[in-house]
Nucleic acid binder design. Sequence first.
DNA 1: ATGGCTATCCATGTTTACCAGCTGGTAAA
Length: 574
Amino acid sequence: MNNLVIAETMEGIAQLLELKGESPFKVRAYQRAAQTIENLPVEAERLMREGKLREVPGIGESISQKITELLTTGKCDYYEQLREEFPSGITRLMEVPGIGPKTANRLAGELGITTVAELEQAVLDGRVAKLPRMGEKLAENILHHVRSLRRKDQRIPLGQALPVAEAIVAQLKDNPALRNLTPAGSLRRRVETIGDIDIIGTSDNPQNVMDQFVHLPQVKEVLARGPTKTSVLVEGGLQVDLRLVEHEAFGALLQHFTGSKQHNIDLREFALKRGLSLSEYGITHLREGWLQKFTDEEAFYAAIGLQYIPPELREASSELEAAARRAIPRLVELQNIRGDLHTHTDWSDGHSSLRDMVLAAKERGYEYIAISDHSVGRGVARGLSVERLRRQREEIDELNRSIENIIILQGAEVDIRADGTLDFPEDVLAELDVVTASVHSSMGQDEETMTNRILKAMQSPHVDVIGHLTCRLLGHRPPVAVNIETVLRAAAATKTALEINAQPDRLDLKDLHIRQARDLGVTLVINTDAHWVRQLDFMRYGVAMARRGWCDPQHILNTRTLADVLAFLRERRV
DNA sequence: ATGGCTATCCATGTTTACCAGCTGGTAAA
């Protein structure tokens, strides 16, 4: 059982305890445990075998027992019993923004509502607004959120799917019967959310590989089994398809199953005009009537007379035309990244120490890292007072003296308050090396108010970057209403950088907006917003989005040297 | 529930926004 499943169970327990009205500290203990496990650098299963579970901070006697039970029996009695105490589905109500445990309990108890559909009906009937201490405004709010949740993407975030696919590939790769093996489909194109995972490969003995595949420990159910295609469900309900073909056809097959569908349609049309018919088996030269096979994709595109198109660009958005002109950009790569300009520490709501974050950044080969803890108004995140901010500067100065080969910048993630003012005074912001300003509250504002709010923040000479512009959380919260183009134009004019937030549930800006920003000459910066040492590795997802937005290294601020980054920041502050 | 400690005990995250009803509860992440 992987850590994510354990974390979800702990989170489930926390929710039910909250509903039950248990001590908030007990609830927090389970929430903390859930977060810790999700961010553990090793499998909890291994820690259990080595008897080291209890050494993890936040995991004590009771929780370690429950984890052990989960790992050995696949179930947790305590959780099951808690679930029986409440109508099933009540925790789904709590997933609607604005509904917490108190409201969920009242809706269930006083109106008998246990599903989101029933909730919507009750709002429409006016039954919700009639409850004491509820009203029209709250009911309307609930309806709004219910409807946007229904529209929500049921797909899995890239950041969850990619590790699953990579783990499977890693486990199968040693099989001597295999020659190639790689994820294809939307995963290979690095689409922000994934439907199911397609892995394709070539083998001289497919039966043997399929046999190993269906017996992988994370496989929960075999849906279909054949020599060329096998489908399974893995932990977390994700479907994984494995296709195997003969080696000579790999290039065409990989191209075909990478998509996108529209890219392939366009490509086939393009090729037909040149007397070529494309298929997953290869390219048929229509005049001579022979099938050309390909062991790799580069040759496939070359045979059509096109420059190679990286998977991230295969979205039918002018890539064919660019490839024909040999004008595909040299896309930014992870190796181009020289630093991270948005990270948190345990000074605010991060979980790793400042020192550990710096050392981890150094391990990743970075030249610089900016520590950007929350500003004072972000109470839930233990935002820094001006006084604590200055004490943090002392620690940073000290670490800059004692740690070599990396420069630590002091930043802050300063709240853009509801009226567009900033949560630190300008003279305090002036002391910082880099300031990221973000919206964290009043996300329901109308488009004009929200746009003006952000424009106002950009007017400050000390705001260098706007963080996670739309505040979306994939599958949980829709983007705020904001006029993207207006913001992009203002960013270009004020030389404010826009963040590509690499947290897998944010990926904000999204690909289309990144490309728009790039075309308008906006400087972009890829940040992890890491709250744990390990989340520094989210950088790859941000890089993937930048690639999907057609960015080459020069569009991205943190591919530049420290001197150039500082020059950019100084220019902003004149 | 955890973890530190004068321990069969005690402390544990704080500020803002919103809304229903005019001061306080609820949620945020």
